[in-house]
Design a protein around this nucleic acid. Sequence first.
DNA 1: TGCCAGGCCCTCTTTAGGGCCTT
Length: 197
Amino acid sequence: MAEDRIIVFFDLETTGLDTSSCDIIQVAAVYEENVFNKYTLPRQAMTPSAKQVTGFTVRPDGLFLHDKPVETVPLTEVLNSFISFLRSFRRPVLLAAHGAKRFDAPVLTRVLRRHSLLQQFQQVVSGFLDTFLLSKHLYPRLSRHSQEYMVQHFLRMSYNAHNALEDARMLQKLYKRWSPNNGDILCSSFRGVGCFY
DNA sequence: TGCCAGGCCCTCTTTAGGGCCTT
């Protein structure tokens, strides 16, 4: 991992939990005060549990979040502008998400590959950091390691969980509170999934 | 009618089961 790499915290909201088939609805990321946040209209219906958890609904007239209309852009535009956002820092990026290994990285990689953007992505992103694995590594005795629990436990805050932007912001706060060393980060990082090597 | 995600980890384990975690 390059010494001068930065860690960008990100989160996805999707139509469900099946990483092999779900559609992305929201991509959000933060690096310090820099923010990326875009929504896109999924091609498929949301699972009932995803609808309940995220508050998103897909209607004939567009995407709604808690019954308020949300501005969407085509998925290709979301992905291209996300890569541009990451490239703008002009340093290798380690992308961090809670559960990145199991969920966010496989979904993002699959969608990037489908849009022939994986190679461009790889030129900017050196790997992923899974803060779920990191929290288990740092605090193995805690009974739970969900992001919502971690935020309550370490930051004594409740927040708008399951909105990708708020999740990414809180993850950055948590990371700063934890202050992991390079060894901790390496233990919880991976280069990619599938052909992302 | 019965299916409906799936990998990881723990233990009352390994010839298994169940909870956690992500949406």
